[in-house]
Amino acid sequence: MSESDVTPEGVRGARPGREAVTGRAAGRRRRGGRGERPVVPEAEFSTYYGMPVLNPPRWEALDIAGYLYLGGLAGASSLLAAGAHLTARRRLALVAKSSATGAVSLSLVALIHDLGRPERFLNMLRVFKPTSPMNVGSWLLAGYAPLTMAALLSDVSGRYRPAGAAATAGAAVLGPLVTTYTAVLLADTAVPSWHDGYRQLPFAFAGSGAAAAAGVGLLAAPVAETAPACKLASLGAGLELGSTQVMKRRIVLTSEPFEQGHAGTLMRASKALTVGGTLLAVCAGRRSRVAASVAGAALLAGSAMLRFGVFRAGVASAEDPKYTVVPQRARLKKQRNKPSAATS
């Protein structure tokens, strides 16, 4: 703990020991330091020895951010599959159906792996509870995952075509919900950066899911069938970047963690990959096999990084008492000022 140094000029950085002045080192904390870029004027606030107010999520980033990413990819892939099915783009449909099935299966593995008691996974379906997004999500996946598998099986085997078409349509109805409910899953917590972003996160996840599904299409479908994937990539990227931009403007203090540290790096990387992948897809995705593959991989990676970035930003916001105390203080102040404003 001690960070003191003995130098020729004496002891540097020593703790005050018995000369300690009470209340100086502890209890009150002035923020600044750590090279943070002040987005809002530094607020003075109290904490308990700088400890967080909240318990941060105990989830593994790989499991839960991975779950969010795969869910997004699966849901949007189901939509892409239905579109391709309808417009008779056989190869694109097959690719999208495989991607939906694979992603949703992997996402279930990630979800179960992250449970403290994986053998009790089915307890999720013990009740139906609309107040719990995780419960709603479990029911959603329980309905959605079999549909994706049925759609894929029918396509691969070429049998039961009407049933396959129905399953494809059903998966396309549930798919978008699978993609966006994960934003509610994060937002319905006390984690400041997640909760405050509840209006924009679903749109960011929808856009990011679309970009990822387009990425799979570009990567694996023949270039002749990728035209819709190219369009979807640009629409998705636009939606994702637009909504994260709006989020940064609307929520002032608690959007800070999205720009700082590890989360900030991930968010910037995601942006670069998504923009780069989209440009490449639009320019060359319909002509060059290589360009389409590179663009697809970039879009997939960008979408994954968005989820990891959002995940990390939330954890960081829960671990810093600033993001809990300062907005709540501001809210109280506003409430207190209201009645007096009404009388004057």
């Binding site: 679903p202 994937a229 629409l235």
Partner: peptide, 15 residues
Amino acid sequence: AAAAAVTLTAGVAVS
């Protein structure tokens, strides 16, 4: 989230 899901569906349809 529902609005975002509808937006996503519309986006794919447009594509």
